[in-house]
Design a protein around this nucleic acid. Structure first.
Lengths: 224, 224
DNA sequence: AATGAGCTTATTGTATACAAATGGCATTCG
DNA sequence: CGAATGCCATTTGTATACAATAAGCTCATT
C-alpha cells in the first residue's frame, strides 16, 4: 500500500490501540481524513482493512464504530491465538534455521535485560517479545497462518494494560521462552506447541487478573 | 456493503472460483469495472477484500494477479481448516440447540438424497454440505473463528474439481456427518473435533488424488 | 403527551478526473 | 553485441464532486 493509504492505516490503527479513539465511539470518515491529512479515499481503504481485522465494526447502515470488546470476546481471541500460535510453534520446530534460533536467543536475552532492573522497561520488553513471536511465526512458513495470527495478536485493551503486568509475569514469560528454545533445539514440535499453548493462556489470565483489579479500582474511585 | 460494491465483489469472486479468471493472470481494475458495470471505486474495494482472503495477490508494485495455489498451499489451507473447524465442532458440541441439530439432520438427509441416485447431483450435494458446515460454525458462536474459516473454506481449484469426486467419497462424507451428529447428541466435544479433523483431512486427500489423476490425464492428452 | 409523517442534515457510496508510479521499449553508449 | 538510460504507455493511487441513504428533528394529529 502506498504512502497516503498506509499512513492513514497506521495512524488510525495506533489511535485505536492507544485508546485515543474510544471503544464504542462512532467513526466518521471525513473526520479521520482531516486527522490523517489525506482524503476520504485512503481512509476508506484503511477502515475496510481495520474492519476485517475486527478493530472496527459497522452497524446495519454502514456506520463505523471502534470495536468494544467484552472479556468474553478477548478470551475467544486468546483461545484462537493459543491454538494458532501453538500450531506455528509446532511447524517452526521442524523448519527453524540456526540463524533464526540465534535471533530468538538474542531477543530473549534483551527481553530479560528489560526486566532485570529495579523498574522494568515494559515497552522494551513488549518490543522484543513481539519480535520473538514474529520469528517463530516466520519460521512456521505459512502465509495464511501468519495472516490469521495478525488478526488476534494485538488487542487494544491488552496493550493498554500491559504496563500493569508485574515483574513476576514478565519473568515467567522469559522462562517460557527459554523452554521454547530448548524444545526448538530438540526439534520437538509437540513440546514447543504445548509450551506455547501454556504461554499464551497464562498471558490471558495475567491480563484478566490485571484487568479485574483495574476495574475494581476504577469502581471504588467512582464510589468515593 | 451496498449494491455496486457487493455486486462487484460477488462477480469477481465467482469468476475466480469458476476459473473464468485464470490463476496467475493479471487483473486490471478498469477491465473488471467494465465487466461488472461499475466504476473502479467499488472494484478496488472488492480487490482489497479478495486480497485479504488470498484469492488475489499483489506484486511489489501493487499490480494484482489471480492467486495460483500450489498443492502445498492447498495442503496448508486444508491443515488450517481442519484445525479451525475441529475447534468449531468442539465448541458447537456444548452450545448447539435442538433446532440447529434438527437442521443439521435435514441437510444431511438432503445431501444423502443427492448421492443416492444413479447420477449424483453434485451441486445439490455441495450446497447442503456447505450449509451443514455453516450451521456448525454458527453454533460455535465465535465471530472471529467464523471469519477465519471463511478464509479457508472455499478454494477455486477444489471447487472446480469437486464434480470429479466419486460416489464413494460423497457417501463417506455423509457417514462422517452422521457420526458428527451422534457426537453432538452426546455433547461430546472431543469426539466431534476428532471426527471433524478426519472429515476435512480426508476431503483434502480425496482432492489430491482426483487432482493428480486429472493432471495425469491432461499430461497424456498433451503428449498425444 | 405520544406517535408518526415529512423534511432537513449528516454520512456513506460511487464516479470521474487527475497525479504518481511502474514497466516496457527503443535508443545509445561502452 | 550487451547493458544502461530515458521516454512513453499502462496501471494504480488520491482527491473531489455528486448521488443515495439513513438518522434526527419538527410539527401536526390523535
Amino acid at each position: 500500500m502506498s504512502r497516503a493509504s498506509e499512513r492513514a492505516y497506521n495512524h488510525i490503527r495506533s489511535m485505536i490501540l492507544s485508546g485515543e479513539l474510544q471503544p464504542g465511539s462512532q467513526i466518521r470518515e471525513e473526520a479521520l481524513a482531516e486527522l490523517c491529512g489525506v482524503s476520504r479515499t485512503p481512509v476508506r481503504d484503511s477502515l475496510r482493512r481495520l474492519e476485517a481485522e475486527m478493530f472496527i465494526r459497522r452497524n446495519d447502515s454502514q456506520r463505523s464504530f471502534v470495536a468494544d470488546w467484552s472479556l468474553d470476546d478477548l478470551e475467544d481471541a486468546f483461545q484462537l491465538r493459543a491454538m494458532l500460535e501453538a500450531h506455528a510453534a509446532k511447524r517452526a520446530a521442524s523448519r527453524i534455521t540456526r540463524e533464526q534460533l540465534k535471533r530468538l536467543r538474542l531477543h530473549n536475552a534483551q527481553l530479560k535485560q528489560a526486566i532485570d532492573i529495579p523498574n522494568p522497561d515494559v515497552p522494551k520488553f513488549l518490543d522484543h517479545n513481539r519480535q520473538f513471536h514474529a520469528i517463530i511465526v516466520a519460521a512456521a512458513a505459512s502465509e495464511r497462518l501468519a495472516s490469521m495470527l495478525g488478526q488476534v495478536t494485538e488487542q487494544p485493551v491488552v496493550l493498554r494494560t500491559a504496563r500493569q503486568y508485574d515483574a513476576e509475569n514478565l519473568r515467567r514469560s522469559h522462562h517460557e521462552h527459554d523452554e521454547l528454545l530448548i524444545a526448538f533445539d530438540n526439534r520437538d514440535g509437540e513440546w514447543a506447541a504445548a509450551v506455547m499453548t501454556g504461554h499464551i493462556r497464562r498471558a490471558f489470565h495475567a491480563y484478566a487478573e490485571a484487568h479485574s483489579t483495574d476495574t475494581e479500582i476504577r469502581k471504588s474511585n467512582l464510589a468515593a
